[in-house]
């Protein structure tokens, strides 16, 4: 399971980086979403995945070392919420930029460089 997920992380990062390097702003944002999901999976994977033993749910924990670690879940939940906000902001910014300039091409963003 962990090897599969590790491969998935790799695939997500590859896809994300490919999308980030494209010229369109929208594709850049999609790439960021991919990388964000891959990162969340890393947080899960690095702390060890335990299947079928949710933490603290029924209050009858026999062996705390066997149940899933609730902390990474809290981290991932928080970071999912944060990236939700960031992605929406990025999309709003992109829409506004498109309305004003009529372009979605990152190569046209040269005005502030010199």
């Amino acid at each position: 399971m962990e090897i599969l997920l590790a491969l998935l992380v790799g695939v997500l990062y590859t896809t994300g980086i490919y999308m980030v390097l494209r010229r369109s702003i929208l594709k850049f944002i999609i790439g960021i979403i991919f990388i964000g999901n891959a990162t969340n999976l890393i947080v899960f994977l690095a702390s060890g995945i335990v299947a079928g033993e949710p933490a603290f749910v029924d209050g009858s924990v026999q062996n705390a070392s066997q149940m899933a670690d609730p902390l990474p879940q809290a981290f991932v939940l928080t970071s999912v919420v944060i990236s939700f906000g960031l992605v929406v902001f990025a999309l709003a910014l992109k829409l506004k930029f498109f309305e004003i300039t009529g372009t979605d091409d990152l190569d046209q963003l040269k005005k502030t460089d010199n």
């Binding site: 906000g85 929406v88 999309l91 709003a92 829409l95 309305e99």
Partner: peptide, 13 residues
């Protein structure tokens, strides 16, 4: 509030 704000901002075109 935040979700509605997001939704209305992004659909307000």
């Amino acid at each position: 509030g935040v979700t509605l704000m997001f939704f209305f901002t992004l659909t307000n075109r």
